[in-house]
Design a protein around this nucleic acid. Structure first.
Lengths: 236, 236
DNA sequence: TATACCCATATTGCATGCAATAAATCGTCA
DNA sequence: TGACGATTTATTGCATGCAATATGGGTATA
């Protein structure tokens, strides 16, 4: 058995990771697999399989599980080990409420504290994102989009805010991806991102807060429908 | 050597914890020690000492360190193990900004979703807190105060919100305790809590948001001064 | 057929041993 | 005395072994 991974070819075993950072690297690899959806939600993770695949012993892997449990990506049950957490639409909505709240704080602070360099970087990302949209590269678009939101939060120069936003955002990433697949939402989202960029460039904190909020609520209303129809397909 | 703990008498060793939950229990114990200030900020934690004190092997202890690292309570460096994180006033302020943001989300939702039972529980806690204030029991006051804020957040019925709020709140707890020692701030804080309770009971979300925000900003301006003067004492 | 039980196997939780690294100690010499 | 290097000791990172638990399969019985 083998867990799929977009990072390495299937038969390949990892080169040994440096002593002292093995559990962090393992956590990063497993996190990537989970966030990317390479390991299906709800499945138990077999330690032996993953240790062989990653070329480390069980100790750093089990430490990695503790890290990922703290991030809400796996659940560890006694004698049953680690299971990839499955998140309901209600839980995704709850997390988005939180993300909106975090971005609200970030919006005001970002408009006060962002350096011209940071804004320029976001503008570049925005251009790249629009380009990906025009080329129809959904994955690239989605990834750049995520980066833009993270960078806006980073503009607030609040490490706690950036850390929590990144973790929560990763936790629900694979569920949010669903929404953008509808092309009419995709076009609308690109337009909203124009507004976001404008508000940031003009350093209008209250405006930025509101357009971000509306952007997420619009996105979620579409994503929720997609998720729910996918779930009813899966269950019926 | 021995790490102080308010939980057990000094010479006592733990009864063995149940198999399958040892790292969680160890994490809880170490978390309590750190949050209570029993282990000083900036100090390295010796694995051998703590394993002997807690009566577990190094494996669950090291797993607990990974959990606590995720919570921002310790930092793990290769070949140097776990160190209790020391937080600067700027970082406390950043975390408080986030807590205000989280409570802002919570305030609106709590006023929509709180059950009468939950509001009644908060009212009881409030009464107990005022009582502790009148008796001059600062520790009891502080603890009840923390519980009230957490319960208000819990009223929003958003598990993600509650989880993040609890973790961030714990992370900076020992730094916030400083502020309340000034009696004029203490009296003012009790008054502000009356306003908080009223707003919740009347389910005025926007009002609750604003009084909570003001409450934290007022508290922080006092706490910051105390922290900074303590730091200048420590360094000068 | 369905179900209860027993046994073999797989998997997990934890303690421990060993190697790598850091820290402390001691001796040497300026 | 104090700076420097070598050597010992302590500490950490990781792999592994063993015991506890869960899991799957087969058989007997209703």
């Amino acid at each position: 058995m083998q867990y799929a991974s977009k990072m390495t070819s299937d038969s390949e075993t990892e080169a040994t990771w440096p002593r002292g950072r093995r559990s962090s690297f393992v956590a990063q690899r497993v996190r990537d697999m989970i966030v990317a959806g390479d390991i299906e939600a709800g499945t138990r993770i077999n330690e032996r399989v993953l240790t062989e695949q990653l070329g480390v012993s069980r100790t750093p892997l089990r430490e990695a599980f503790k890290i990922l449990e703290g991030e809400g990506l796996v659940r560890i049950e006694p004698n049953r080990g680690a299971t990839v957490v499955s998140i309901s639409p209600e839980e995704v909505e709850a997390a988005i409420e939180v993300l909106i709240g975090l971005e609200s704080v970030a919006a005001e602070r970002a408009c006060e504290r962002a350096t011209p360099q940071m804004i320029a970087e976001i503008e570049q990302l925005h251009t790249a994102m629009v380009d990906a949209y025009k080329r129809g590269e959904l994955m690239e678009y989605f990834h750049t989009n995520q980066t833009i939101h993270q960078r806006i939060v980073d503009c607030a120069h609040n490490a706690t805010l950036s850390r929590i936003y990144a973790a929560e955002s990763a936790r629900i990433r694979r569920y949010r991806y669903a929404g953008n697949r509808r092309s009419e939402r995709w076009a609308r989202a690109v337009f909203e991102h124009e507004q976001i960029l404008d508000a940031l460039k003009q350093r209008e904190g209250a405006l930025l807060r509101e357009v971000l909020r509306a952007h997420h609520l619009n996105g979620w209303s579409v994503t929720r429908n997609v998720l729910e129809s996918e779930m009813s397909k899966a269950n019926g």
